[in-house]
Write a protein that binds this DNA or RNA. Sequence first.
DNA 1: GTACATCCTCTAGTGACTAGAGGAGCAAGC
DNA 2: GCTTGCTCCTCTAGTCACTAGAGGATGTAC
Lengths: 141, 141
Amino acid sequence: MQQGITIGNVSQASGVKVPTIRYYEQIGLLPSPPRTEGNRRSYDHEDLERLTFIRHSRELGFEINEIRTLLSLQDQPTVSCEDADAIASKHLADVKLKIASLTALQQELERMVEGCSHGHVETCKVIDILADHGKCRFHGE
Amino acid sequence: MQQGITIGNVSQASGVKVPTIRYYEQIGLLPSPPRTEGNRRSYDHEDLERLTFIRHSRELGFEINEIRTLLSLQDQPTVSCEDADAIASKHLADVKLKIASLTALQQELERMVEGCSHGHVETCKVIDILADHGKCRFHGE
DNA sequence: GTACATCCTCTAGTGACTAGAGGAGCAAGC
DNA sequence: GCTTGCTCCTCTAGTCACTAGAGGATGTAC
C-alpha cells in the first residue's frame, strides 16, 4: 500500500519547480501520474528518479529533445549505448567551443574595463571598442 | 545629395539580418528611417554605425536593454562613463562565472564519454551518471 | 514585357520555462 | 462546524531575441 508523493514533495526532492513539473508532463517528458480522489497528482519513487535524471541532464545543458532520447535509452538497458555516447560527445564538443569563445570574450571585456578612463564617455574605451569593431580582438562565437 | 542605403545593403554591411533590423526598429533600438517614394526604408551612414555597434554588442553577449543604455551613453559624450563601465564589469563577472561553470561541465562530460564502455546501456557511464546525481562531480551553474 | 530579386506588413512560432488569474481541496486550530 | 492559510488545479499569456512564412508591392535586368 504505497501512497503517492504530492507534486510539492516531488518538487522539493528533485529540485524541479512545481510549474516546471507540470510543464514536463504537458510536453510528454514525464508520464501523467494517477490522480487522487481530489484530483491531485500522485507520484511514486520512479517518477522522482526520472525527474532527477531530467534535472541533472538540464543542469548539464542537454536540450529537452536530447533528454527524451537519453530517457528512452535508459528504458532499454540491452540496447547499444552508441546513441547516448554520440549525444554526450556532441555536447562536449559544443561546450568546448563555447568555453573558447567565452574566454576570448573575457579578454576583450577585460581590455575594455581596464581601459576605462573613469572619465567621460568621449574617452571611454568601453563605448569606443563597441563602436568600432576594428579595435576589437574578439571575433568569436 | 546623399541617397539612402537600402535595408539589404545595410544588412550586408553591418552583418545584421534584414528581419532583425526591422525587429530592432520595432522595439525602438534603431530609429525609424525615412522612406522612399516606394515606401522602402532609406538608411544613412549613421544608422550603419549604430547597427554595427548593436551587432558587436550582441556578439559580446550584451542584452538588448544593456545595449539601449550603452547607445544612449554614446549619444551623450560628456556624461561620465561610470554606467558603461558598470555594465561591462558586471557582464565580465557573469562571463567569468559561466566559464568556470562550463569548465566543470566539460570535465564531467569528458568523464562520461571516456567512461563509456561502448557496449550496452546497462553498463553505460553516460546514462549511469545522469541517473545518479551522487556519481557526478559537477554541481555548477 | 516579363522574370526575378528585394522589399513591405502582419501573424505566429521557437525553447524552456515563468507569472498570474480564478477557483477547489485539505489539515490544523478554535 | 468553521475559519485560516497552504497547496493544489486549469488556463492563458508573457519572457527573450529573434525566425519563418503568407501574401502582396516595387524595382531592376534582360
